[in-house]
Nucleic acid binder design. Structure first.
Lengths: 154, 154
DNA sequence: AAAACAAAGGTCAGGAAAGGTCAGAAATGA
DNA sequence: TCATTTCTGACCTTTCCTGACCTTTGTTTT
């Protein structure tokens, strides 16, 4: 049996079939499906997460809206998981080098972008605010963030 | 859909597209959009701030006016330096929003990429490993890294 | 010259209109 | 049954917008 959440999900997915990005009004959508507005949040939280390949941006107040955008990961939903998994909670410089090579080999990253990433992250980590013993953690965080952004681009 | 503030903002931006500096009369503009004069101030305060790269000068009394001047960035030879500078050692979420808006306006970043960055960084900062009191520092680090990578390509 | 008036723009509290959060009830399925 | 998922309602935060009142500047009157 498909629940109301499933129906709302389907409705939004259909819209996103045609466009990369849609804008909705929570109140209006809730009225359309005769449910509580917070139901919309539930659907977004459970079915349109970053892991699912979607981005949500919203604004409150008069003229408020919720914008849903498909990220590039959407085409290969596993990319996000793969990146998170391969980077892990900590990563050494060698680990980063190996990962970047692999991503380039698998065409998930362009050569020049990987080089740029390497430069920027290494440079950033020279900042003395990063204590030596935590560098692997910070490297992981920086690398993950930058990769998610780069690979999420169209 | 889009609020009155959005419309007024758009109108002013269009004018600033052609000239770097414009002079308006609050009363007249308010009449044009059929709103309270203070609405104009609201738009200026929320959308034409210094962080956004605008300078506002005004004069009261008879023959009073409001002058809006827009600062440029993209012609600067050291854009990356400017970016580092504006990110600084710490940056609030609002500061990040303003900077992203500005980069988009200056065509140094695509709008989609700015959403992506926004989402990824906010998502990353939700990770409990980042203590609340250090979020502004971490936000700065993540934002700087990601922006240098994104804006440093080509 | 001083006072009064007129014509700008500035400030701020507060109401209205969005969306966000979260505990817990209700439904569902194993 | 009992764990999980769905759903709602009460309450919160953010954004928009107005109106009453204030300050500054220029002009006119006395």
């Amino acid at each position: 049996m498909s629940s109301l959440s499933d129906l709302i999900e389907q409705y939004l997915r259909d819209l996103l079939e045609k466009r990369d990005s849609i804008e909705i009004q929570r109140r209006q959508l809730a009225q359309m499906f005769r449910c509580a507005p917070s139901q919309i949040n539930y659907v977004l939280e459970t079915r349109f997460t970053m892991e699912d390949g979607y981005l949500i941006v919203s604004r409150r107040g008069g003229g408020g809206y919720i914008k849903i955008t498909r990220a590039h990961w959407h085409e290969d939903p596993d990319v996000l998981g793969k990146i998170k998994e391969s980077v892990g909670n900590e990563i050494t410089q060698e680990g980063m080098a190996a990962l970047l090579r692999r991503l380039v080999r698998e065409s998930m990253l362009e050569e020049k972008d990987s080089w740029l990433l390497w430069q920027v992250i290494n440079h950033e980590l020279e900042n003395p605010v990063f204590p030596e013993e935590k560098k692997d953690k910070h490297r992981a965080i920086l690398l993950r963030t930058a990769l998610l952004v780069l690979c999420g681009r169209k």
